[in-house]
Design a protein around this nucleic acid. Sequence first.
DNA 1: TAAAACTACACCAAGTCAATAGAGATTTGA
DNA 2: TCAAATCTCTATTGACTTGGTGTAGTTTTA
Lengths: 153, 153
Amino acid sequence: MKLSVRGEYALRALQVLAQHAGDAVVPMQTIATEQNIPRRFLEQILHGLKAAGVVESRRGITGGYRLARPASEIPLATIIRHVDGALAPLSCVSHQFYEKCSCPDEARCALRSVMKEVRDTVAAMMERMTLADLVERAESLRARPMEPVDFVI
Amino acid sequence: MKLSVRGEYALRALQVLAQHAGDAVVPMQTIATEQNIPRRFLEQILHGLKAAGVVESRRGITGGYRLARPASEIPLATIIRHVDGALAPLSCVSHQFYEKCSCPDEARCALRSVMKEVRDTVAAMMERMTLADLVERAESLRARPMEPVDFVI
DNA sequence: TAAAACTACACCAAGTCAATAGAGATTTGA
DNA sequence: TCAAATCTCTATTGACTTGGTGTAGTTTTA
């Protein structure tokens, strides 16, 4: 049920791009440093996201990456699907990555029925949440004072 | 975000045991045949579930497996955690399999905050749903007539 | 024209996954 | 007692995935 490191890096990198929404482009090195992601690995990931149409790039010394659309129009679901594939716990309940499973009658498979609910719930959450929400949340977390528990010795 | 085949087999196998709740034990071969699971692979899985205290076994020619507790007291979460590990998309939001992640300040990590909500939602669903519910659902699906869409040529 | 950035593709080590193998230990019925 | 059917335990295997490097470019601008 886990996100891969690749998926996590992708989300973190895109959060950075969303935060620098004003700038023309953000150089890859900036993202790598800010999020502590191996530069060459990040390269691969961003390259993939460009092929997927999520980001745009500019080459040369003033080059870098930026979001291809406003952050508010890029749901986390889109990113995860491009990098890690299905959101569903079983591929037989996935919409975008459906694969027939081994049970004789999908329509009457209890496990499938349960996992479909899980998929629908997770997918709804991930579709609703966009990169803009991620930035907004980062800001409100930054503003918020330390949790009381953190003051305990 | 996927369940492994191992996890799927475990859930299917335990559903069978829950369905045969009256019987003393169910031989492994019966489960393997009923759910089309490779016998030797199932062996490993059930062995693990026994070590985890989920099932009990009996050896010899009249041997087999049965649930160690009533089906209504075995949530799907327990099984998945034993077989596949964390339910959380990031290990830094896992309760049972927590691992520190690379970000500098967990308390203010936006991604972590979002993924924590996903984890809590999924965990709640999986905790609430037990093997007894799975059996019940299987019965209601068996009773239900074909979906209208299935009649379309 | 050199530096800094992106592009493209190949490669690799380590680990995981799904499954199989083999040699037992138990239990019961004949 | 013995044979058959079952669980027990540990190893191993082959394919694939994951996370990450390497090398050799191309593009752009100071």
